[in-house]
């Protein structure tokens, strides 16, 4: 069998739709660039302070400056969202970590004799570190 014969038939995206989408994407990007930047050369510096804040003295401005309570609330909200999503993502990391340990336990150990491993019971051979791979 040649490689060609067993390659699947795939109906992907048509050239035209890819092309149109690319043009739309670039056009919108160009428009938003124009809107955000105008035709000025260089980048704006009005509202930003150098990231390394050595100057000081801006703090008082901050305390009295943020007069929009909604924005304060928005920031509190997004903090909460970050923490909740962070906890959730951590749980997902741990589940996958543990699942991977178990799957690894089902696999052949590196260098394991191929002929004996045909008995596919998924158990780790003796000498494995026993992590997870109890083969149920």
């Amino acid at each position: 069998m040649t490689a060609e014969e067993d390659l699947p038939e795939v109906s992907g995206y048509s050239r035209v739709s890819v092309l149109i989408s690319a043009v739309v994407g670039l056009a919108v990007a160009a428009l938003s660039l124009f809107w955000a930047q105008g035709l000025r050369i260089g980048y704006e510096s009005l509202y930003r302070v150098n990231p390394s804040v050595e100057g000081g003295g801006i703090g008082s401005d901050w305390v009295f400056g943020n007069t929009i309570p909604a924005l304060d609330f928005l920031i509190a909200l997004i903090h909460a969202a970050d923490v909740i999503m962070g906890a959730f993502i951590l749980v997902m990391v741990f589940i996958h970590w543990a699942a991977f340990q178990r799957l690894a336990g089902q696999m052949r150990e590196p260098g394991e004799d191929v002929s004996e491993a045909v008995a596919a019971d998924g158990g780790s051979p003796a000498g494995g570190d026993g992590q997870g791979g109890d083969g149920a």
Partner: peptide, 21 residues
């Protein structure tokens, strides 16, 4: 950032206008 705008709009458009999408 502008690159991201282009990529996101590209993808949204493609998903809408193509039958595969």
């Amino acid at each position: 950032g502008i690159g991201l705008v282009a990529l996101v709009i590209f993808w949204i458009t493609l998903q809408i206008i193509s039958s595969t999408g």
